[in-house]
Design a protein around this nucleic acid. Structure first.
Lengths: 325, 325
DNA sequence: CTGAAAGCGCTTACAG
DNA sequence: CTGAAAGCGCTTACAG
């Protein structure tokens, strides 16, 4: 039998109303009374039932997060940033991935309708965008962490993809590399276009081959380009995973990195430190993006409306052996 | 204004009791009445408020998970296994990491007392073990995913560390390697002792150096051992991260892998496929461990008590280039 | 088969 | 400064 507000009230010789008041630190309580109530609370180890509080107040002090597969190499950082921020605010975090298709989307939608949480954080919505849009229109506060598309309807957090691409180009240029090969991600992603444009602004080239962010695609793209015999002295891969494939293809072809070819990736996933050679890359501040998005959502719930314009956090070039300074 | 059970009752011309009965599919409702109520529910898009249901029933249909830092390379798999299982059961998953010391442990403890969830999954409890034990004694169902220590008080899921160590030894032996070096993890972890014992049973050696599961420790341990000049033809590292350090030290010393030295790790983190050469390793079924632990907790909540003995899932040797067959 | 009423544990006008 | 009462949206004996 957990202790309830009624137990505290009885024990302290006051009404439940008064206990509730000291709980919620409303000023209108006699200092002595308040002290006595607080003692009883401590003595009994009383903690208000979150369900009951939620029902009475009409909010749950819980936010939800909807993510792509958690095995993506940078999800850990994003999640950790979100969890830390949400925990620090005294909120709970409900996690959904909708990894199992329709059924899981429905379960998720059900939780929304059941008012199980007050706000929602979404990472890279893909096939859930319609569902989320509908929820948002019905009044659910939503913040996106999204690089792929631009959804002006939602507050969002992104990163400086364009400047990130430019920084990669400047780095290669400073090292005297003038004939880069670019291995892109899927061209329908906004981040891919921005990374490409930023790079091309600084270091124009027509050596551009398409990939899809997987290691295999990086390897194949490199092999295909090598087969053409066109010379190149560096590679800018649009994410680290495909850069790993690039490194592998270059090694298999007997090209030395960075002596023959310098390689720069994007993301700075944990693996980037451990490739051979370690990968120079444009770091996305995933943890800070998570913190920031969570902060915006929490602020919104507290009454501060989220910014209309996307919040854009800076990338940072991390120089390692695959493309030294 | 979300629609409530009262709206449905009014619209269908029945009492809230009856609506509740069809919601919870209790048999004692006239088929026609039930059908009518169901129509109204669909028409109104009614979903019961989870908070109100929880309060009335005294349970939340939510489980919590307490994890080490989410940036650990295998946490994504565990989490995904848990999320999938929990979602499929129609439960919510509340995520805690207690990453910020005392304060976050207190927040977590508060949520427990607030009965925000019905059961708890814990991954590798370290400094939270006391807190968890106390909660468990007060009646909170708990399942551990834990390799490190053995806590007979809790139901738990682990993996065949001993057999995993043995399989690594058999693999090396079959390849004609008879002088292994072992780079261990922290000796106070149960999994480390088991991996060591399993290996030594098959392939005894006194070439054992201590590490702590980090890449740096693997590198330093290897460097130190190389400095002694003692010959060895293979390395068994107690986890993949330290195996990455081993590979690096060997390369720096000009030893070829696997020609001079074969290397076997443990875990099969994503990075293991991308090292140079790719890492042969003993795979822990992290996702299935997550699924299984979640399944046990859910079953317990549904009335099937969890097994007293730890559930032990099999490891699997993954052969790659660092120690070919 | 169905409903009125009490209860889950809180909060919040309202009155004093 | 304090309390009685209603209400949040459900479920569940109890009675019929």
């Amino acid at each position: 039998m957990p202790v309830t507000i009624a137990d505290v009230a009885r024990q302290a010789g006051v009404s439940k109303t008064t206990v509730s008041r000291v709980l919620n630190t409303r000023g209108e309580v006699d200092a002595g009374t308040a002290a006595r109530v607080r003692e009883v609370i401590a003595a009994l180890g009383y903690v208000p039932s979150s369900g009951a509080v939620g029902l009475a107040r009409g909010s749950s002090r819980t936010v939800a997060m909807l993510t792509p597969p958690l095995t993506w190499p940078w999800m850990g950082e994003v999640l950790q940033g979100v969890v830390d921020t949400v925990e620090a605010a005294g909120y709970g975090l409900l996690l959904f991935t909708c990894n199992r298709g329709r059924e899981s989307v429905e379960h998720f939608a059900g939780q929304v309708s059941a008012r199980a949480f007050d706000g929602l954080l979404v990472v890279e919505p893909e096939d859930t965008l319609d569902t989320i849009t509908a929820m948002h229109r019905k009044g659910l506060p939503v913040v996106l962490i999204d690089d792929r598309g631009h959804h002006p309807e939602f507050p969002s957090v992104a990163t400086t993809n364009r400047e990130g691409g430019a920084s990669a180009a400047r780095h290669l240029l400073a090292d005297g590399r003038s004939r880069p090969l670019i291995v892109t991600g899927r061209p329908d992603f906004g981040c891919v276009r921005e990374r490409l444009e930023g790079f091309l602004d600084v270091l124009p080239t027509d050596r551009v081959v398409g990939g899809d962010f997987t290691e295999v695609s990086g390897r194949l793209a490199t092999e295909r380009f090598l087969a053409t015999g066109r010379p190149f002295d560096s590679v800018f891969a649009h994410n680290d995973l495909s850069a790993v494939g690039v490194l592998r293809a270059l090694r298999a072809a007997g090209r030395s990195v960075p002596d023959d070819i310098a390689v720069v990736g994007f993301d700075d996933i944990p693996m980037a430190q451990h490739t051979e050679p370690p990968l120079t890359t444009v770091r996305q501040p995933m943890r800070r993006m998570g913190e920031r998005a969570a902060g915006m959502l929490l602020a919104h719930l507290a009454g501060t409306p989220a910014p209309v314009e996307p919040v854009v956090l800076p990338t940072e070039l991390i120089v390692r052996a695959s493309a030294p300074a």
